[in-house]
Design a protein around this nucleic acid. Structure first.
Lengths: 217, 217
DNA sequence: GTTTTCATGTAACCCGTTACATGATTCA
DNA sequence: TGAATCATGTAACGGGTTACATGAAAAC
C-alpha cells in the first residue's frame, strides 16, 4: 500500500526533523529544495499535512504566542498558526525512509529531496544513492545516444541541437555526481574532517540524542 | 476556452506537418523531443489524436497496405494502422501557433517543443522566443540568488550544494541561449548561408564572464 | 485607511500515468 | 509454439495547480 511518490511527505518530515514549523513557513523552505525554484501550492501542502497528522506522524499545535522565544524581539502577538512537529512514530518513519538506498531513492522524482536530506543520512547510504543515480544517468545517456545515432538522419538541426544540449546537461550532472562521490569517499576515509568550507550553523533546538553514527560531519 | 497547455497538440501538429504518421510511430518521434528522454504513454497520445480529429485539425485514414511505397522492401501486409495527416485547417492552426512569440512560447512547458519546431518558424520569431527565454531565466536566476543569500545561513551544506548546482545548470542554459541567439543573428545578417552549419557552430569552452558581483562568498 | 504580507484551508479541474483489454505479426 | 514487437484503445487513478473563501496583522 505504501509505494506512492511520497516526495512531499519525505520533504515535510525531513524539514520538521530539524525544527518545528507552521505551514506557511514550511512552504518557503520546501520551495528551496523541492524542484529547485518552483512554488509548491498550499492546495498541496495543507492536505498533505492533514494526512500526516491523521497518520500520527506529526502533530500540530495551535500557538498564537511564541512558546519560549526570548531571542528575537518585536514578535509578540502573531496571528494564531499551527506549528507542526514530528511525533515519535514520525521520527522513526523518517529514519526508515532515510535508510532506504534502493532505486526509489535515486529516481528523478525523489533524488533531490533525498540529497537535500543527506545531512541526516549516513555516509554509506549517501554513497549508495549517489552511485545509484550515477549509474542511472549513464544508462539513460547510453540509451539516448544509441537511439539518437540511429535516427540522427531524420532529425533537423534544431531537434538535434536540443538533443545535444540535453545530453550535455546530463553529462554535466554525471560529472557533478563524480565530484560528490569522491568527496564522500574522502569523508569516509578521514571521518573527522577539518576541511569544512562554511560553518554549518548547527542549532537544532530540540533535545534529541538519536543522531546515528556516521551521520554527522 | 482555448488556453490550455497544448504542448502535446503543438508537438503532434508539428510532427505531422513534416510527414503523415500513425500513432505508434508518432510516439517514438515525440519522445525524442517532448521532455527529452521520457516516454509519453498511449493513454495520453491516442485521446489527444482523437480530439484533434474531432476538432478537424487532422484526419486519420486506415491503411493496411503501404499506399505508394515502392522503395523499401520486405514490408508487405502490415497490420491495419491509422495514418494521421494535417487538414487544411490543421496547417493553418499550426502556422498560427508557430507565429506566437509571447511568454507562452518561452515558458518551461512549451519552450522545448517550440524550439524543436524552429525549422518551421521564421528567424524573427525564433529570436524573440530565444531572447524571451533568456530574460525569463535570468530573472529567475536573480530571484533565486537573492532569496538564497538571505537564507543561506539556515541551509546545511547539502541543501546549499543542490541549490548551487541548480543555479549552475541554469547559468549554463543561459549561455547556451546566448550562443543560439548570436547564431540566429548571423543567420539574419547573411540569410543564404553555407549549407552545412549547425545552429551553434562555435562552442566557446571558456566559462566566461557574466558572473554578477555580490552574488556569493 | 488601504494595501501587503501572513496564515489556513477547500473544491474544481488538468494533464498525465498505470493498468487493463485486444489482437495481429514477426522472430526465435 | 511461444515470446517480442507492432498497433490501438479505455477506465481508473494520482498528484499536482488554480481559483476561491476567509481573516488577522503589519506596513505604508
Amino acid at each position: 500500500m505504501r509505494s506512492r511518490s511520497d516526495v512531499l511527505e519525505t520533504a515535510i518530515l525531513g524539514l520538521l526533523k530539524d525544527s518545528p514549523l507552521h505551514g506557511y513557513e514550511l512552504r518557503k523552505r520546501l520551495n528551496l529544495v523541492l524542484g529547485s525554484f518552483r512554488a509548491l501550492s498550499y492546495g498541496s501542502l495543507y492536505p498533505a499535512l492533514k494526512t500526516l497528522v491523521t497518520r500520527g506522524l506529526i502533530i500540530g499545535t495551535e500557538s498564537s504566542e511564541a512558546p519560549s522565544a526570548a531571542l528575537a524581539p518585536a514578535l509578540s502577538g502573531r496571528r494564531s498558526r499551527i506549528v507542526y512537529e514530528l511525533t515519535a512514530e514520525g521520527k522513526e518513519h523518517l529514519q526508515q525512509i532515510l535508510a532506504q538506498a534502493g532505486p526509489a531513492a535515486w529516481e528523478d522524482e525523489n533524488f533531490d529531496v533525498r540529497f537535500a536530506l543527506f545531512g541526516q543520512t549516513d555516509v554509506e547510504t549517501r554513497l549508495r544513492i549517489l552511485e545509484g543515480r550515477r549509474t542511472r544517468l549513464t544508462e539513460r545517456l547510453e540509451a539516448v545516444r544509441e537511439s539518437t545515432t540511429r535516427s540522427r538522419a531524420r532529425m533537423d538541426e534544431y531537434t538535434w541541437e536540443l538533443q545535444r544540449h540535453g545530453l550535455e546537461q546530463v553529462e554535466r550532472e554525471v560529472r557533478w555526481l563524480d565530484g560528490l562521490i569522491t568527496a564522500e569517499r574522502d569523508r569516509g576515509a578521514r571521518p573527522t574532517g577539518s576541511a569544512n568550507d562554511h560553518p554549518v550553523s548547527r542549532h537544532h533546538t530540540t533535545a534529541d540524542g538519536d543522531r546515528r553514527p556516521g551521520t554527522e560531519r
